[in-house]
Nucleic acid binder design. Sequence first.
DNA 1: CGATGCTGACTGACTGTTCAGTCTAAGTAG
DNA 2: CTACTTAGACTGAACAGTCAGTCAGCATCG
Lengths: 228, 228
Amino acid sequence: MPVKSDDNGSGGEIVDRRREQMLLAAAEIIAERGFSETRIADVARRVGASPALVIYYFGTKDDLLTEALRYSEDRFYVVCAEMLASTSALRDRLESLVRLTCIPDGEDQVPGAWGLWFDLWSQAFRHPLVAKDRLELERRWRSTIEGVVADGIRAGEIKKIDAEDFAVTWAVLLDGLSIQVALKDPIVDSERAFNIAMTFAEQALDLPPSRGAKASTRRQRAGKSARS
Amino acid sequence: MPVKSDDNGSGGEIVDRRREQMLLAAAEIIAERGFSETRIADVARRVGASPALVIYYFGTKDDLLTEALRYSEDRFYVVCAEMLASTSALRDRLESLVRLTCIPDGEDQVPGAWGLWFDLWSQAFRHPLVAKDRLELERRWRSTIEGVVADGIRAGEIKKIDAEDFAVTWAVLLDGLSIQVALKDPIVDSERAFNIAMTFAEQALDLPPSRGAKASTRRQRAGKSARS
DNA sequence: CGATGCTGACTGACTGTTCAGTCTAAGTAG
DNA sequence: CTACTTAGACTGAACAGTCAGTCAGCATCG
């Protein structure tokens, strides 16, 4: 057996690399074909190893897939944190978050990551352990939004509002939007999703409209909202 | 072979009943165990028949499951239409729609129907044929919301607004809320989901607050969601 | 040498699907 | 009314493919 997940400094060098390769490959394949259509043989082939090795590392197909889900959650969160670190302007940050969830494939993430969410939800619905992970992810996600808003308030960009309430509602809205975009709904494409999300944020936070927009047109056709 | 789906008056009586039994059973099991964990043997057992008979009727496991998905979509829509027919007051109707999506198991529907949504999305993401069905369902769903709002405008209950835009956004919001409720998120339980949905509707439609609430206590315990 | 990383060949269980044929009810002829 | 036919609903048993997981052993390296 390989070193479980001990990060003993010198030990599992190759092991850790292999593990990550496999997790990434598994995540990709889950996203493409779906959780239950993912075969260990596929994962093995993609990392150029034998199926036996995958079992050697993870012991069980289920462990592999579950960890792969966790892995991509973490990935998502890391990318998210990086994006937020690159600017401190409230509007830019909000736009980053929307882009992260509603625009096709930032290259940083696991490609086709949407399929992953569907499977994550599906698994979480039926398996308490996955549910716990998902909950933790959601918690972090909301905290992130809440933090961004709180920063905005602290910086005086917007007036004080209930950040928790906004975070919860907005997170839910983004989930819904991402579904439509992922499923290539012709009515709600990524551009419209972006506009819906930002329009909601503008109204809920009383955020001045984007620099591009004229000052007086706030409630205009607030939805279809040409933000451009 | 059984009569395909001819409804020739005298012919496939038993056939139709059997088919529906099987579709319902399949839908239930999909909701419980998940799409790909559904075995034809399970479906057969639940209707008290042999696995061979299920194949005899549907030809293929995939056909059965796909049709089962369609079947439950239709069911949902029918229940929805019935609910709306029972009242014409805008607020009541909106509340009905929210209840339909965000409150655990109306007995009319396929029980545990949440799991079904996840699998529907998952399948739609990867199989164009399912995607087409899902799109049609979404279209009807939005039209329904739009119709309700349009009725409200026509009846003078609210002022004129962009009904299509509201329908799209609200539908997305409801999707997001239903996910949280389905996954038993402790933060967004069905009560809070209900409040979020109705609060959004009130603001977007400029709908007077519910009769139950005293005029000044709008922020009461509306699910932590005082919107101001 | 011993530990570690790794594999090919195998197996055992599962499950969708086929098929040959049974049972029942209705029709039809004698 | 009886005997024979037919067709549709249905099934048990077998088949065939797929795959997760096992195992005995090979190679490499310190």
